[in-house]
Design a protein around this nucleic acid. Sequence first.
DNA 1: CATGCGTCTGTGAGCGTTCACAGTAGAGAA
DNA 2: TTCTCTACTGTGAACGCTCACAGACGCATG
Lengths: 343, 343
Amino acid sequence: MTMSNTGGRRKPPTIHDVAREAGVSRGTVSRVLNGGHYVSPAAQEAVNAAIRKTGYVVNRHARSLITGRSDSIGFLLTEPQERFFEDPNFNVLLSSCTQALAAHDIPLLLMLAGTKDERRRITRYITAGHVDGVLLVSSHSGDPVAEELREAGVPLVQCGKPMGPGAKVSYVAADDRDGARDMVRHLLSLGRRRIAMVSGPLDTPGGVDRLAGYKEVLTDAGIPVDERLIVSGDYSRASGEAGAEQLLAQAPDLDAVFVASDLMAQGALAALARAGRRVPEDVSVGGFDDSVAALEATPALTTIRQPYDRISAEMVRVLLAQINGEDPMAVILPTELVKRDST
Amino acid sequence: MTMSNTGGRRKPPTIHDVAREAGVSRGTVSRVLNGGHYVSPAAQEAVNAAIRKTGYVVNRHARSLITGRSDSIGFLLTEPQERFFEDPNFNVLLSSCTQALAAHDIPLLLMLAGTKDERRRITRYITAGHVDGVLLVSSHSGDPVAEELREAGVPLVQCGKPMGPGAKVSYVAADDRDGARDMVRHLLSLGRRRIAMVSGPLDTPGGVDRLAGYKEVLTDAGIPVDERLIVSGDYSRASGEAGAEQLLAQAPDLDAVFVASDLMAQGALAALARAGRRVPEDVSVGGFDDSVAALEATPALTTIRQPYDRISAEMVRVLLAQINGEDPMAVILPTELVKRDST
DNA sequence: CATGCGTCTGTGAGCGTTCACAGTAGAGAA
DNA sequence: TTCTCTACTGTGAACGCTCACAGACGCATG
């Protein structure tokens, strides 16, 4: 009669059981577990066999207790809920960070800090050392949370360039300025001359840089920058819609709109459609991000691809390096123009 | 001269430091930490003061090592990446589960199991006891992961009704059938008689129940069910678009479409617009979920609200109960008709 | 007065690891 | 030989907490 295994959780094997099974000491098993240096091939193999046989899995709590590391990292989003619900970019980032961490066998703790209370609770949680480091995503920069964590000495990597000039904080970002340049050059190459822009928030470097790229290319082409052709939004769909409406009122003769995010571009497309402007016949529309919103849009958006998977991979790499004592660093990744039907 | 605290992580206070500060023993501090039973008010207060003074935060690893609990739970999503990127419902669920858990001071580990490899890795991680329980979200039911976890005795709560009949697995779901009934009754009340349906996948109870509600109300109203008015999708936007196209081809005289998710309804609206059908003048369109997709749609969608925040709260409640040894249970929550501009 | 009971408190043990250290064996150099 | 060096292995001591137990105290009960 064998007892059914179903339903009950029996006591899992420990490193001791593995050691006994393999005929070696705990220390040797531990060494195998942690890289296998200074272990004879014979012992190595015996231990691995014992691990397989017993089904041993390391007890992370015991390990963490002694190492002082939690072997987990936090993914911190300091955005209001609605933005998280609306913008697929967060999901892409979250998903690829999760996967990048999974490759290192590190779990990701999701931390949503939309409100002040949550921010306080989460800051305390993090500074208490419950995670080894933090991947921070926030569009509004100069984030007080970032500053607080940095002061507490918590390894931190930000997605997107932070506001302060000399702040020694790691970040990974796409080359916003260059991406914007590519898009505006593309619009120029189509013969567009009255190119408007719905920029991102101008209290963020990302928003500033994209606008700067836009102005730079126009100026280089000998086209004066017309302030009536420029409005700014907050990356939400609604703000893109409102922005486009405002542009149509201020500058009805526009023949192109460069919108600083795909989600805002969706809104802009809706506003243009309502105004009876055909895209791309009457007006070319360019987005930024290459999120799923770009493909869902009608017509499909020409946009600037941010290499989200590379961004995530770099964020994780930089964070892990920093946890291992390396200095903060900045990584800028190239973007790519993706031509679709809206230009 | 005080040393700057910046940058360095100093050794945090332990329960020992608190005990010394408060003039009591470790045991007493521990009792205060865990509910304060069998502690005199005086000691209680002394300990709390000492905790505040020292800035003590419990070391979760040490606690977990002895209790055997990890005090963390996993949020498992067994959907392909693209679905996660596209469908805002996942974010709503994820966000509110995170918050519900935060109220219990329990971190949420995000587990994305889109591929077979990931599923295997994550299953091993979970069965190794690294989380105390799992919140499972998957639209395609009869999920092998769920079965495996259940057999391993891992506390588990599923979002949405699972497939098998007698499986003793906890779940929380909205009343799909009743929601569908409400919507179809609403469409009937508007005078619609050729009501089509784009159902969800028919290998899931949710998909089946919504279709059943639709058929039930029609039959009760004396309207024969016309199979040409029924197609099914997979909850993706694209499948809603394709579904509506197919319906228009099969039954051009339809005067309403009940679509089993808002995202699919978005697609359906696009297809109807392309076919020159005005919504709601020519065709009434009803969605399901009340996700942000419903508000983004043009026109704004009449839909059936799923109470996501209550669903999440219940999932967490049921899961925690199960972790504490209670039996699996099912919770069905009521839905609500939300009238907007598409009907 | 003795006994019991409920409330409160301190103490030692132990959770499963890693780490530092000591020790062994064998190879090569003096 | 003898000494040193390297490669490898085992052992005890932590890590910070909870749990079981034992003991102390006050109060009511026999």
